[in-house]
């Protein structure tokens, strides 16, 4: 796929919601090891609400769809991940406002704006054992793919692979942000739930925009 429109973005969001529902227990189990056992429950509640919103008020364009998801996440998720992912979708919406279709470079720009939004709100950096550890390597891979002329499908697949590696690389880290930081050294040896849900979102995009 060389560019994506509203249809493809909606397909991604449906795929993401389905994967989160499927992985709800797993995400929650990861969060029970180093957090408070609610990440999968929170994300599932938020993405369910997002799909309901999109169905009740069909968005006119991609920006409207992303904004609608942002509002659902901010309003329904709670926890740290609600405002963080909510901010991410809001900033992505602003970055591609007015666009009918997104080329790989547009996707990369939106993704950059989304990550910057999360960092501005949560003040986490790479290595703090958060979702940033999946998102930043994913962006780097996306950017590299764009530079070498890849289409959206190929670029997002590279991003999802990099997110998977970033997610796994959170295992040995000691958390410095979020609830897991209360554990100090004991947070090492566990995969970060937020990095795992970030990978899910990207893997869903790779699936939806695959061929």
């Amino acid at each position: 796929m060389n560019s994506v429109g509203l249809e493809e973005v909606l397909a991604w969001l449906r795929e993401a919601a389905a994967r989160i529902e499927e992985q709800k227990e797993y995400l929650t189990q990861l969060d029970s090891a180093i957090g408070d056992a609610d990440h999968g429950i929170n994300m599932n509640r938020g993405f369910k609400a997002a799909l309901e919103r999109l169905e009740a008020n069909p968005p006119e364009d991609i920006a409207a769809a992303l904004k609608s998801v942002a509002m659902a996440l901010i309003g329904k998720v709670g926890g740290a991940s609600g405002p963080l992912y909510g901010t991410m979708f809001m900033e992505m919406a602003k970055a591609i406002d007015g666009k009918e279709r997104l080329e790989a470079a547009d996707v990369a720009a939106a993704f950059r704006a989304g990550i910057d939004g999360i960092k501005a709100r949560g003040k986490a950096e790479e290595g703090d054992k958060t979702m940033i550890d999946a998102l930043e390597p994913a962006y780097a891979a996306l950017q590299e793919a764009v530079a070498s002329g890849a289409g959206v499908g190929e670029a997002i697949a590279a991003a999802a692979d990099a997110a998977a590696r970033g997610m796994e690389a959170t295992i040995p880290l000691v958390a410095r942000k979020g609830r897991a930081s209360y554990l100090g050294e004991r947070s090492a040896g566990h995969q970060d739930p937020g990095a795992t849900s970030s990978h899910l979102l990207l893997a869903a995009a790779a699936e939806a925009w695959g061929s």
């Binding site: 408070d36 056992a37 609610d38 901010i74 309003g75 709670g78 926890g79 740290a80 405002p83």
Partner: peptide, 11 residues
């Protein structure tokens, strides 16, 4: 009140 052990939301 948020959900059990989950912070409430801005609205």
């Amino acid at each position: 009140p948020g959900e059990v052990f989950t912070s409430p939301t801005p609205d």
